[in-house]
Design a protein around this nucleic acid. Structure first.
Length: 570
RNA sequence: UGGGGCAUAGCCAAGCGGUAAGGCACGGGACUUUGACUCCCGCAUUCGCAGGUUCGAUCCCUGCUGCCCCAGCCA
């Protein structure tokens, strides 16, 4: 069956189909235009998934373009990081561009605007411009320099380019309408003088184009058909259209806006992310608590999971905040089939099998994945002394406790059923050892071993136990008590609501990172390569961290397993 | 008090005048040598509110309310 009609799955696709049908465009070209002033986070990821996927769906291509027009904030390290992240996500851009590659062309177009009489050099100070811009409810007033002659403007603009004036002394402005109800249309600045070293053009330029000029023109130069961006740019659209029209482009791109992604208990503003890094609240842009792709990669999230998440979130125009649980669901779903299972005990307590011969160590065969025999099996040692999870034993458990308790029986996964006979305590009354007897007839997989017990525990034998460090994560922000001004501002990129550093810092979750030192694991876990992912049976998905050494492997918990028992106890 | 947007379940989100998709979360059950996975079942008589048009309105009209964005020589 051939699919003859393409079904739009969101309003952007509807627009695209509409444009294709009407003949406004005969193909689709998109672009992802990050400023290289930080690493990409999950919010950007939604954006570029949309950019690439729309292009792909309609047989078009997507460019990667760095909008590097503000040299004070940009670095080569960020452009490299961004490219790596996009590639890791499995997308392929068509052309790779830098706005800075077009500075000459942009300059020429600005000159063209001056010649047309729709741009002028303004000598007012930033402060004067602010005052004459008017307010949201009152119109602005024209600059005294607004009616300069084309010749003078040309001369002055060239002077700006040649470094004849000080930073901030003059700007080039578009001549639009100082009384426009849309403040952005009140003669926006399109070039400023800025003596800063640019990561690509060095000191060649001392004037740099502004976003509202560069972005639309650049889109048009690249032949972008659909310029997708987030909602805050909706009010820039008239300006966008003004620019490409004034510059004389035949088939101006269509800008379409969609709502950006927010996730509960997640910092999604580059400004605050930078603060976390620069002030040492996290170890870096790839600290596994960060919402950056670098961090998610390190933590063990897969590109497939992230794409699945973005897909489930959908595309719309309404402000929204997605629950972190949806992301976690996608991460588990993506790992379930591919992560080999193995055993690690995060918080060990010693268990002695009193009827097991002192020096006997057996080798048991355990499957690496219950649903995927092709992932093979491994040998695991089993002896008289083992470790089990401290929380898997309770002396006085509540009802419905299927784990180990005095006189109770459980199965040790892949091994035997054991019965708890006694507990050994220290002076403080803490249980330090559990003594059990093995039902020798219950060996896993053997005939007659089909006796059922309610609980199955993971374990590591003392003979096999290798120390590992385990890092557990929680959301970086505290649970929101109430919607307060601070929390809202955290969700908005570069949102300038006056949130003091103190408010932000006070919202950080002190338990976002928990480091476990006494954990033990099977050799297959300890000896795995960095970035290897496992499901530690019953404990969650874990990924080996680059901080690992040969003496001490380090594992990040990517995500915990769902835990009905914990929920019941709440 | 200007302009631009947005309101459908706890969280996302379909819906495009013919009688409320789906996912997550949540609750119940089955299965289980992971309290996982998987599988069943349940979960909006109602779409921000109030009017109007219509045989019929989440959808069209009017008025209201609430939330978000805009006064950088940031992007």
């Amino acid at each position: 069956m051939e699919k003859t009609e393409r079904r739009a799955s969101n309003f952007i696709e509807e627009f695209v189909e509409e444009d294709l049908a009407s003949g406004r465009f005969d193909h689709v070209k998109t672009r992802f235009p990050p400023e290289p002033n930080g690493f990409l986070h999950i919010g950007h990821t939604k954006a570029f998934c949309i950019d690439f996927q729309i292009a792909e769906k309609y047989g078009g291509l997507c460019n990667l373009r760095f909008d590097d027009t503000n040299p004070t904030k940009e670095k080569t390290a960020f452009v490299e990081g961004i490219q790596k992240d996009i590639e890791w996500m499995g997308f392929h851009w068509d052309k790779l561009y830098f706005a800075s590659d077009f500075f000459d062309r942009l300059y020429d177009i600005a000159v063209g605007l001056i010649k047309k009489g729709v741009a002028y050099v303004d000598d007012q100070s930033a402060e004067e411009m602010r005052q004459t811009r008017g307010t949201l409810t009152s119109p602005g007033t024209n600059s005294p320099y607004r009616e300069r002659s084309v010749g003078e403007n040309l001369r002055l603009f060239e002077g700006m380019k040649h470094g004849e004036y000080e930073d901030g002394s003059r700007v080039l402005r578009a001549k639009i309408d100082m009384a426009s109800p849309n403040v952005l249309m009140r003669d926006p600045t399109i070039y400023r003088i800025l003596r800063a070293h640019h990561h690509r053009t060095g000191d060649k330029w001392c004037i740099y184009p502004m976003y509202d000029f560069q972005h639309p023109i650049q889109d048009a130069i690249e032949g972008v058909t659909h310029s997708l961006c987030s909602m805050e740019y909706e009010i820039h659209r008239p300006l966008y259209d003004w620019m490409v029209t004034q510059a004389g482009f035949e088939q101006p791109p269509r800008q379409i806006e969609f709502a950006r992604l927010n996730i509960t208990r997640t910092v999604m503003s580059k400004r605050y992310l930078r603060k976390l890094v620069e002030e040492g609240y996290v170890s870096g842009w790839d600290d596994p608590r960060m919402p950056t792709l670098a961090a998610m990669r390190r933590r063990g999230y897969t590109p497939e999971s992230i794409k699945s998440f973005v897909g489930k979130v959908g595309v719309a125009k309404a402000d929204s905040e997605v629950e972190g649980a949806l992301l976690e669901h996608c991460v588990r779903e993506g790992l379930a089939d591919i992560a080999p299972r193995a055993m690690a005990v995060l918080d060990p307590i010693k268990l002695v099998l009193t009827n097991w011969p002192e020096d006997q160590v057996d080798e048991l065969t355990m499957e690496n994945h219950p649903d995927h025999p092709e992932l093979g099996a491994r040998k695991v040692k089993f002896g008289r002394e083992l470790f089990i999870e401290r929380e898997d034993f309770m002396e006085n458990p509540p009802g419905k406790f299927f784990r180990l308790k005095p006189s109770g029986e459980v199965r040790l996964k892949g091994a035997y059923i054991i019965r708890c006979d006694e507990v050994v305590k220290d002076e403080a009354g803490e249980v330090v050892e559990i003594r059990c007897t093995v039902d020798m007839t219950s060996k896993s997989g053997e005939e007659g071993a089909n006796r059922k017990v309610k609980g199955t525990l993971h374990w590591v034998s003392a003979a096999d136990a290798r120390p590992i460090e385990v890092r557990l994560y929680e959301p970086i922000l505290n649970e929101e008590v109430e919607a307060d001004a601070a929390s809202e501002a955290l969700q908005n990129e570069e949102g300038e609501a006056e949130v003091s550093q103190k408010d932000f810092i006070s919202r950080l979750n002190p338990d976002s990172l928990k480091v476990l030192r006494g954990s033990v694991a099977e050799p297959i876990i300890a000896d795995a390569a960095v970035a290897a992912t496992f499901q530690f049976l019953r404990m969650g998905y874990f990924c080996k961290d680059p901080d690992s050494t040969s003496e001490l492997p380090v594992y990040n918990r990517t995500v915990a397993l769902k835990d009905t028992w914990a929920k019941m106890n709440k």
